[in-house]
């Protein structure tokens, strides 16, 4: 839970609540963008952005290279799998 995981924003699902579909470690789930949007970077302009996701919230915008390197390290640390499983289990629970 201390390490963020990179995800790419694929679509805005609720602009008012700042929610978006983000592809994180191969899992598509809804993420909150409240911490990465401001006047200079409104929610509509976020599609395609890479963000670091902490427990369902985007906490920072990062570039694609940084995202790729971070994903590789998380994979080697076993964190990617752990978080992917947590996301999947959590999604099943909610459906």
């Amino acid at each position: 839970m201390c390490l963020g995981i990179p995800g790419q924003i694929s679509e805005i699902t609720d602009p008012a609540l700042m929610l978006a579909k983000v592809s994180v470690a191969g899992v598509k789930r809804e993420i909150n963008l409240a911490c990465v949007v401001d006047e200079a970077h409104p929610v509509e302009s976020c599609v395609g952005d890479w963000v670091l996701v902490h427990v369902g919230f985007a906490m920072s915008r990062i570039d694609a290279d940084e995202a790729a390197r971070t994903l590789e390290i998380l994979d080697e640390l076993g964190e990617l799998n752990e978080q992917r499983e947590a996301m999947q289990e959590s999604m099943e629970l909610n459906t």
């Binding site: 789930r29 809804e30 909150n32 427990v55 369902g56 919230f57 978080q83 947590a86 996301m87 289990e89 959590s90 999604m91 629970l93 909610n94």
Partner: peptide, 13 residues
């Protein structure tokens, strides 16, 4: 007791 990935999931529950 439920394991969740995010507090958002708890709110959805």
């Amino acid at each position: 007791v439920r394991m969740v990935y995010s507090p958002l999931d708890a709110l959805t529950l």
